[in-house]
Design a protein around this nucleic acid. Structure first.
Lengths: 256, 256
DNA sequence: CGCTTATTTGAGAGAAGTCAAGTACGGTGG
DNA sequence: CCACCGTACTTGACTTCTCTCAAATAAGCG
């Protein structure tokens, strides 16, 4: 009731809450517990602060396939994804592409930047986001040390993930790469929807997966087929996978 | 004169100044200018703070080949390298290794961690470092927002480098990888010793380079030979390289 | 329902890996 | 200071995993 009355500001507040809360949970499996704790933390410390964040944020929606920001653009905004899936990529002059990450609700991008974006962000599915002018965010850091800490923690988590991905790209075989990917996606997916134990939805194309794993589409496809034939996964169309034997997948992901 | 009297505390202060200053310059070519500016910034804002940092730091020296910290160890310290070269690596269970970075004077590690280190750090050459208990550093963040900002900026730079390395590992050919590596090392080297225009010293072994670039020793060696025969570099022993044609190397690094 | 695009599958080529041997380098002890 | 030894580096021959090119099949969209 009350909600519909204050619709716009409330949505803003909610989106910002997400920035503060969900990121805290990223990488954490005991998320119900944790999100409660952090929502609590918000109300304890951030009541006014959440409002401050809400004040500088604006809604931002895009259809699938649209570019959200490009390599070289002035890095004016920090984006927080509320709904949808985004891919972050870098390109070589001849068009070879490396996807450095897939982002989901609760994730953000455009934070760890200098004056220009060093990557391109594109919507894989329709996205609902909110964005914050980076200048204003930066100003808030000095007023809210907690926010700075949060942001640092999020960046650390991202850095750690990047190092894991370097190990994958540099040293794993094609099948190890795909197994690692499926398990990572399953974990991310479980954070958002704790149900659906063994089911993973893959919104991205085979070509996106290839560019994320440093492979070609054909190799990715062959590895999917191989895992399916081995009985480790079951494909339900190209974008839905059931993980039938996680332990075996985990072993394969590390080369055992 | 005065220096020798207050030797120990002075060294501490100097090392911490390095943490605050040199990191600011990383990635910046106009370093003379910048370091002056930031030393100024230090004295303006950090006189007492630098002392606070000095108070919690301890010296830490190790010979070449020694392990500084291991994957899985409790992450108690933040390390700042004063002299020497360090490699950061991750391993797969079967021993395959990925080096995620080479660190030089002014660099640090152990900051973006949770409770345990997710990597191993080893001395390539004898190293002279100082280390800070992370708990105490964390406490200082709330007292010194500037420190937090600095640290966040450093982590951002590191994240950006990690993304570049992902592009290299996932999408570049062996010769592109080596060219990129040589240019990056030359740039890092120029930051430390602005002289010696085309000369780069490589303290690490071929095997380290291979594990950094996602290649084998043999391939790295063959690519060195190939570049030398093409007249783009000149090898002076295995650890010293002259870059004879930077433009050509830069073109090769991106696949032109 | 038809068209376009994405995915899968097949056959052949190539870049990098493996295995093996030779060479050079660096440190140590005579 | 030089000779020796062990390790690191280079080079060669061959293998293999992944890529490339090409075609068939399936899926998604208007």
């Amino acid at each position: 009731m009350d909600r519909s009355v204050h619709k716009t500001p409330f949505n803003h507040a909610r989106s910002n809450l997400k920035l503060v809360t969900s990121s805290t949970c990223s990488g954490n499996t005991a998320c119900e517990d944790c999100s409660v704790r952090h929502i609590a933390m918000c109300s304890a410390l951030d009541t006014k602060q959440v409002q401050q964040l809400a004040d500088i944020s604006t809604d931002f929606k895009r259809d699938a396939r649209q570019i959200l920001c490009s390599e070289g653009d002035p890095a004016d905004y920090l984006y927080n994804i509320r709904e949808g899936c985004v891919r972050i990529s870098k390109m070589l002059p001849d068009g070879r592409r490396q996807i450095t990450g897939f982002l989901f609700p609760g994730d953000f991008f455009g934070l760890a930047c200098k004056d220009v974006y060093t990557f391109t962000a594109e919507a894989i599915s329709p996205v609902d986001m909110c964005r914050f002018p980076r200048k204003k965010i930066a100003r808030l850091f000095s007023e809210m040390p907690e926010l700075g800490e949060r942001v640092f923690e999020m960046t650390s988590t991202e850095l750690e993930a990047a190092h894991d991905q370097m190990l994958l790209l540099g040293r794993k075989t094609a099948s190890e790469k795909l197994c690692s990917f499926l398990l990572a996606m399953a974990e991310k997916s479980a954070l958002r929807t704790p149900r659906a134990a063994d089911h993973v939805h893959l919104p991205m194309s085979r070509s996106d997966i290839a560019d994320y794993l440093g492979l070609t589409v054909e190799t990715v496809s062959r590895q999917f087929t191989k895992l399916a034939k081995a009985g480790l996964i079951k494909l339900e169309g190209a974008h839905d996978v059931h993980l039938l034997d996680r332990d075996a997948l985990a072993d394969m992901a590390e080369g055992d």
